[in-house]
Computed example of a mutant assay.
Amino acid sequence: MGELVNVVVAFAVIVILFRWVTSGSESSEQRTATSALGFRPKNVTPEMVLTVSSMFPDIPVDNVRYDLLRTGSIELTTNKILERSYLDPPPQGYWTLYPRQTSGSSTSTTSRGANAQASKPKAPSLIARYSLQERINSGEEVAQEELETAGGKAVWEDSAERREQSLKERKAKMVLAARQKFLAQQAEKEKVA
């Protein structure tokens, strides 16, 4: 019985020494991160955050980074987003370690959105894309019955060129009908206001 007590005490001493030695190897930053977040954060690279953020642009970058710090895996984070369609927001302790970045950061949602808008050329309007400016200037209106059936069924044409022309005409009618509906809605809003 005495030997059993000695073995248990020796084992307890070894476990305590091992924990003391391994916790001493942790840097003060790691201890601060562990105490602030409540768990030991995994190594997360900016590429990991960028990968998940590019797949799910509607999820805030800080939520993505926080979940990656917990899981350490892009796959687990993306599965969580697919299952729940959101990620939990980071706790207050997260913001002490990772303060919100203002301009100049490519991972910040506000600056990323501003940079994307500044660098991306503005897409041409549908009117310009389908060369409908002449029809608008001539005052071509879409009849009310055409407005409701714009882009409806097409007749199968014999040649590819005629089918393409028919498709272009249907697209043009749909764009003009949508524009006319939009202008009518704007006029109603102005009457109400």
Rank of each mutant, 00 (worst) to 15 (best):
Q165K: 14
K168T: 07
D58W: 09
S85D: 12
T51R: 13
L17R: 03
F182H: 14
R19V: 08
A172W: 11
Y66Q: 11
T51S: 15
A178L: 15
R112F: 14
P90M: 12
Q144A: 09
L68M: 08
K120T: 15
R170H: 04
E47T: 11
D62R: 11
M1D: 11
G38Y: 11
E47Y: 09
T78G: 03
Q30P: 02
Q180A: 14
V52F: 01
P46S: 04
E140A: 10
E161N: 14
E145S: 10
L167V: 15
I74D: 03
E164D: 05
R162G: 05
L87C: 03
V9C: 01
V15W: 09
A172Y: 10
E134L: 10
F56R: 05
V7E: 12
F39D: 13
P124C: 09
S111F: 00
K42W: 08
Q144R: 04
L76Y: 04
K168C: 09
K189H: 09
Q185N: 15
S35M: 08
S105E: 02
V52P: 08
A150P: 02
A114S: 04
V142C: 01
K120C: 12
R112E: 01
G38S: 08
M55T: 10
A116R: 13
P57E: 06
T77D: 08
D62I: 13
R129L: 14
V5I: 14
V44G: 05
Q101S: 09
L76W: 02
G152S: 15
D67Q: 12
I14K: 11
T78K: 00
A116D: 12
A187E: 04
A10G: 09
Q101V: 04
E29F: 07
E83K: 14
V142R: 04
Q180V: 13
V52R: 00
V8D: 03
M48L: 04
A193S: 08
F18P: 06
D62W: 07
